[in-house]
Amino acid sequence: MEVLRVENIVKQYAGHTALDDISIGTKKGEIFGLLGPNGAGKTTLIRVINQIIGPDSGKVFLDGKPIHPEDVAKIGYLPEERGLYKKMKVYDQVMYFARLKGMGKVEAKRKIDHWFEKFEITSWYNRKVEELSKGMAQKIQFIITVLHEPKLLILDEPFSGFDPINAQLIRNEILELKKNGASILLSTHNMNSVEEICDSIALIDQSKLILNGKLAEVKKEFKSNTYAVQFKGMTFGFANALFADFSLEKSEQIDEDRAVAYVKLLKGNTLNHLLKTVMPVVEIESINEVIPSMKDVFIQAVQGKKGGNDE
């Protein structure tokens, strides 16, 4: 069952369309990567889901029911551009946001203690936010986002502003929240973290949804039938052996007589065919299919160079 379902969302502003018929869904216990270049419409979509702005048409469902203003208590949102009240004490501030999310005082206090102890920052309670570093403030914001145990977490660039150690800490927390059943919508430009933690992705470009699905499947879609062949022997001989059925994309020399060649199979040729062709000239050490990185997928998808086009 999908926790969040966004259906045919259209949002237009004077002069331009921000979202053009977007439909996506996230399951329970899933991390869903919302990707796209700057200005693609991700923030608008997130604001529509958060009911900050209303769509021109289309619907948002939470737990299968049309989303309702009271549902804000079920959503935790960490905006990309985030701030806190500088002059307010850390504890008072977290308590304030918890109460705005509809938590009772006693429950909120218990959860605040829990998270602050977990992050070992209880000594910050009475400090004003202006006394904290940016990374420290980010931690507070993360706690504010997850404190009320939302079933849907929307995290916009959650790792920006953190040093590698704290980024790892936040990453582990996100994974733990996932394990506990939260559905997480993650918007980021950091493709490494997408590969590491996302189960599914959607890619929005120029207000349109251009990719959507399981991470592994999307990547498979972008495979270009290319293999990395590691061999012992002359690269020159290897290249000569490839006729019109194969294309040598590039090659890298490992040492004096060993190299890796990236070969693309053309016109319905198989790997067996390739092996037959090159085995007489070189000694093959390994063969791996080249799976595109998310970064490649992103760039190819956005620039319209989808790998399967020439198949």
Binding site: I52, V72, Y77, E81, G83, L84, Y85, F97
Partner: peptide
């Protein structure tokens, strides 16, 4: 303006109506 320039408003509007 304080809430706007410090971007607290981003967090606030996901909890309360403007």
């Amino acid at each position: 303006l304080e809430e706007k320039t410090s971007r607290i408003v981003e967090i606030l509007v996901s909890s309360v109506k403007p």
